[in-house]
Simulated assay, not measured.
Amino acid sequence: MFIGVPKEIKNHEYRVGLTPESVAELIANGHNVIVETYAGAGIGADDDAYIAAGAEIAETADEIFANAEMIVKVKEPQAVERAMLREGQILYTYLHLAPDPEQTKDLINSGAVCIAYETVTDRNGGLPLLKPMSQVAGRMSVQAGAAALEKAHGGRGVLLGGVPGVKPGKVVIIGGGVVGFNAAQMAVGLHADVTILDRNPEALEKLENHFEASAKVVYSTKAALEDEVCNADLVVGAVLIPGAAAPKLVTRELISKMQPGAVVVDVAIDQGGCFETSKATTHAEPTYVVDDVVHYCVANMPGAVARTSTYALNNVTLPHALAIANNGWKKALSDNRHLMNGLNVAFGQVTYKAVADDLGYEFKAPEDLLN
């Protein structure tokens, strides 16, 4: 198969779809790989590293999209990239379609076969291609929130860990999944006052057993959520409904009741965000203020630590890329139900139910499309 890796063009996105090591694996399996010049610069991989791995180098993205049978990316294709997709071409990347009707419409019109990292599952019901980026984003959320709390950045002027004689900052984490767990690890490590809210009894028990007295674990009722958020210095939104838009758990009214200079970090912004006041921002301008509350809503947080993120991502995306390249997308999906769950759009049909429901499209079962 002819596989193409374009340079990411989303604002301040430094990751790349394939590392030189991943390219070498694909080539060892008999495939051809073409990489856009400077695509790996953000992770310290120059064109020579890709050439040494066996790849060809393209001068433009147009050349990649015109020739490749499968496009491997990190972030969702931007409008100019979507216009270059063609019918039957495989797109393998993060998509996050539910809060993005324009992208969904363009992908439908392209006729491309669009496999989304974030909805591929595993035998335990997890999201293995989303997990490493959730780990990175969870850890970064506290790092970013701590910086935003500094007075120079509009925050309350609170040091999360406090100092002897001064109490630590209060961190509230909404959601106890992968993002929430990793955020809590970081916040506990800084010796902050940490509370984690969740509704899943198994998650609550796991969190309680892991953190013991170093973090409080609370069942998330409306009253508990309001009480914790209103008294927080930093709130991390870490909720996820696979493939669907994130629920707006924190209303505009509740934001207005928070302490002036408090910070919210919405890690769910890729799926539309879980704060009613959230809107996607970039690393160039990561924050804005609503009702004296600083909002950090960067939609590609892991892009800031591109090398760590790219290698972590390739560890989980490469095996499926190999399966698709070796067997073709139809057989690869037919052989692996979990990879089939990643199919979101194909030949003008929406093949992921949560996306179809959220955006008002007719749902086409992927099994029916394969048959």
Rank of each mutant, 00 (worst) to 15 (best):
P286L: 01
D266M: 10
A280L: 13
T308E: 06
E285N: 13
D233K: 12
E285R: 10
P302D: 01
V305I: 15
S309Q: 10
V264K: 03
T308Y: 03
G243V: 08
C274S: 13
D292M: 09
V289Q: 12
N315S: 14
P286G: 06
A238W: 00
N315M: 11
I241T: 14
L249H: 00
E253W: 08
I255T: 11
A312I: 04
V294F: 02
A262C: 05
P247I: 13
Y311N: 04
G261P: 07
V235F: 05
F275W: 02
A284Y: 14
D291L: 03
Q271W: 12
F275R: 15
V264C: 14
P302M: 04
R307W: 08
G273K: 09
L254S: 07
N315D: 13
T317I: 13
D292I: 05
V290G: 02
D270E: 13
Y296C: 01
G237L: 10
I255W: 14
Q271A: 11
A246N: 05
L249P: 03
K279Q: 13
V294D: 05
T317H: 09
T281Q: 12
V305T: 14
E285L: 13
F275N: 09
V265F: 02
K257Y: 12
V289H: 08
G273H: 03
A262W: 05
T310F: 09
N300I: 11
D270H: 03
P242R: 14
V267H: 01
D291Y: 00
R252A: 12
A284R: 14
L240Y: 03
L313S: 07
A304H: 09
A232W: 10
G237I: 02
T277W: 04
G237D: 08
P286I: 06
Y311S: 08
V289A: 07
V264S: 06
I241A: 12
A238C: 11
L318T: 15
P242E: 13
P286K: 06
E253G: 01
V294I: 15
L254G: 00
E285D: 08
V265P: 01
N231P: 00
